[in-house]
């Protein structure tokens, strides 16, 4: 077992991990941060996306030991300080960008990573950026729309109720 210390959602945390302990397992099993989900074994579905040192990472494809000393952000830390939904989360709700909710944490984390680097992404840029996030419920229409709306773009012309 190895001791790891990292900052998660602004708080310093420590734990004992095996070499094989994935960051996702450390978050879910040791820290009970179960918003990060596991939907596949091949690093493709993206339900486990978190940010490590500001970059989107599939937490199921990184060992906890490798995150020692890192600054990690998960879905649990995304809301505003007063507990209200942040602009991306609010846009997902407003535009019905989620159904079963299982892929949603990864989608929100990927969206946050995109909007940090690209303040006004086009539809094509959003779709391409979400290549590593699979959703089975929404057909992506409202996810793409929500992310564009969260960036401040007028999405009223994009069809939907």
């Amino acid at each position: 077992m190895t001791k790891v210390t990292m900052t998660i959602n602004g708080k310093s945390v420590s734990g004992e991990v095996e070499g094989r302990t994935l960051l996702s397992s450390f978050l879910r099993e040791d820290l009970h941060l179960t918003g990060t989900h596991i939907g596949c074994d091949t690093s493709q579905c993206g339900a486990c996306v978190v940010h490590v040192d500001g970059k989107p990472v599939k937490s199921c494809t990184m060992f906890a030991a490798e995150a020692d000393g890192a600054d990690v952000a998960t879905i649990e830390g995304q809301a505003n300080a007063d507990g209200s939904l942040n602009v991306i989360q609010a846009a997902f709700q407003e535009h019905h960008g989620l159904q079963c909710g299982f892929c949603t944490p990864g989608m929100v984390m990927s969206a946050a990573a995109l909007l940090k680097d690209n303040h006004k992404p086009s539809e094509a840029e959003v779709r391409e950026y979400l290549e590593g996030n699979i959703c089975r419920c929404t057909g992506y229409h409202n996810i793409v729309k929500a992310i564009m709306a969260a960036s401040g773009q007028d999405v009223s012309a994009i069809a939907a109720e």
Partner: peptide, 23 residues
């Protein structure tokens, strides 16, 4: 009415309780 979904809040904040989230 196109009321926004109340269940969204827990899913968007990582507080949904799926089966594997429970021990």
């Amino acid at each position: 009415a196109s009321t926004v979904r109340r269940e969204d809040v827990r899913f968007l904040t990582g507080t949904g309780q799926y089966c594997d989230d429970m021990n």
